[in-house]
């Protein structure tokens, strides 16, 4: 099964679970399965149109899915997906 690593800030919505395992065939289905298992995380990962929020990045291993097949990127057993929030700021 593929594993989804949940970022620390969102773990309060997954009962503090750090990862989630899924048999989903692609990235979109995996994130959907995660939000099905933990409904409170849904609004943090999907926008109102049901798309993965654009300030989140998803990595398959060390690669951004945007350089692969985006949300349709296929998953194999032992794949590791990471959900990545934007980390930025400054005095500006």
């Amino acid at each position: 099964m593929a594993k989804v690593i949940i970022p620390t800030p969102l773990r309060k919505f997954t009962d503090n679970q750090a990862s989630f395992e899924t048999n989903s065939e692609n990235v979109y289905e995996a994130i959907k399965a995660l939000s099905g298992a933990f409904p409170e995380i849904q609004k943090h990962v999907f926008d109102e149109q049901g798309q993965i929020r654009n300030f989140l990045r998803i990595y398959l291993g060390d690669e951004d899915i945007n350089v692969l097949d985006k949300e349709k990127t296929s998953l194999k057993a032992d794949d590791v997906l990471s959900i990545i929030p934007a980390i930025a700021g400054g005095k500006n």
Binding site: L10, I87, G89, N92
Partner: peptide, 8 residues
């Protein structure tokens, strides 16, 4: 800017 990007 810090607030805009802050995570829970």
């Amino acid at each position: 800017t810090d607030l805009k990007f802050a995570q829970p």
